[in-house]
Design a protein around this nucleic acid. Structure first.
Lengths: 178, 178, 178, 178
DNA sequence: CATGAATGAGCATTCATTCAT
DNA sequence: TATGAATGAATGCTCATTCAT
């Protein structure tokens, strides 16, 4: 699954061949089929593992008792940290989350993860700290920003200094706060 | 090229076969090879045409003499308008702009288009209207936001009312303004 | 189709590979798929052509106005002649007519051909020239005999002299006549 | 071997996989290779066991001292009985006796069994009870008939009543008797 | 002796590309 | 210039066979 993730993240699903995955995993091509019925089953398993890993990461040490501002900051740094520490997983999730080969379980689990963000944003709107704009739109703005920032960090166009990260977090917060 | 754009945008490069493009274009498969050396040459030509179209669209009626705030608003609505009116072109650009089959000319021309945004952001920083944060990062934030908003509009999860668009523009502006 | 028939007749469906058919037909492997959706579609097309050819052969110069005895003789020699002149077609039909890959059209067309024999046998029973035994059983006896005789002729264990053929025809007739 | 016979009879040699046989036999796939060098060695062993079983069955209670007519009747009912009681064995023998994977021992042993029939027919010809037609041809006629009758019984198109069986035996006898 | 995970050659099938018409 | 039939390399996948346990 690690070998597959790496290739799927770098080239996408269609451009990744099963023999290449096998080579990268240092197993025979047939071995893959002992564990996954299809190439599609494999990509779904990889996707689900990524989503779960991301989801756990986000909720780890989540400051449930702090205010919205603090929680936003937590999520921002968790996303950035995940993108930094799990480069392939993050770039795979970001690029393939609309792919036609994802099965319903993959879609559900991904939606569930996003619901965590949605709930956060809705809570913020309720207490009048976050703007009264459709939640999907708010999420789109910050998620889009995260994704592009992560790309820049990955490509080393930006380097992850504390000061920069704090500025970027502030930018994102200013986009949604009242 | 229109036939190809439609298919590339909907299915991606690898999942689009040359015979399918030919069928969609109502020409013989061989005819495509009279105009493009490869499938890759075709996709690059399509990409470049999209970038140019996007670029022209952005600069059309650009309020050079207005202030940064007004220019930002212009760009925001131009991007949203382009995404609405050129659904395939925008979704193709957004999804394929990191693809491994893009040649250097495609990458250059895309970069050139982004430079227009970069210059705008740098001008804004100079006059102290836009935050003093690396330009790439500022761009990432607003571009990421645009892309995700465009996805929501395309999928009809949001509908493009004046009020909503104004709010979203404000969100994006607040992310970068001083 | 000729190339495929030859191989299917000699080795059966599963033991015949598409590349081998292509080689035998002196075409590229992909070419086969321009004309037949599947290997199964090909084998069905071949089967149906064989059935039709056999069926036409049987009915050619059929002595409709003669008596049962004469008609039996006609059928016997037509079957033997077909088996001699269309070695592959006959051996393919004989060995594959119960195969699980045959589609409903193949099964129908084969049944239709057998109905010709069945009608003949039933007419014979009606006029009390052929024994009053279930038609399927009568058919089984003579068809089984034909098939095995054809095998011997094909393998050159017997040679097709007039005298021998007349004797064999008599044997078969004696098996079913009153 | 029982597990293999069942599968070979139902699906043929090529369509039966070794793991499936192992599953059906409730052993590990590797275990099969402790007893048979190849899949081919297995199918030959199965074939030979079937031939021997058939052969013993035919000769059991063989009325050596009775006349040809009585012996013919014995053989007919033994064949029918074997086909009824050893469905898989008979259908395997019938369908695979020309298969290209049979080794020389299989072919010899099968020929030996047929020689029993041949001797019987030759004896009958000597005493002028059976027609003076090449033995192979006589055998082909009755063997072909048996095979097709057995198919009908197996498929329950005919049911094995005493009266019917006696009629069919008479048909077969009339095909070869003087 | 029994196992079953691992293997990789070989299969059916697809599709970018060519080239005779 | 346009065509589309033909191609064969490359793909996803299967399965007979091996071998460490």
């Amino acid at each position: 699954m690690d070998a597959a993730l790496e290739l799927f993240a770098e080239r996408g699903f269609n451009a990744t061949t099963v023999p290449t995955i096998a080579l990268n995993a240092e197993v025979g091509a047939g071995t893959i089929y002992r564990y996954f019925e299809h190439k599609e089953a494999l990509v779904n398993a990889v996707f689900q593992r990524c989503v779960e890993s991301f989801s756990h990461h986000l909720q780890e040490n989540y400051p449930s008792d702090s205010g919205i501002r603090e929680q936003f900051r937590h999520l921002f740094f968790k996303v950035v940290g995940f993108a930094r520490d799990h480069v392939y997983a993050f770039s795979f999730l970001e690029s393939q989350s609309n792919a036609p080969y994802l099965d319903s379980k993959s879609i559900d689990i991904f939606q569930e993860m996003m619901d965590f963000f949605y709930q956060f944003l809705e809570e913020g709107k309720k207490v009048n700290v976050i703007r009264s704009v459709p939640t999907e739109a708010l999420f789109a703005i910050v998620y889009g920003a995260y994704v592009e920032i992560a790309k820049l960090l990955r490509k080393k166009i930006l380097s992850e200094s504390d000061q920069l990260m704090n500025s970027l977090e502030a930018c994102c917060w200013d986009a949604v706060r009242v």
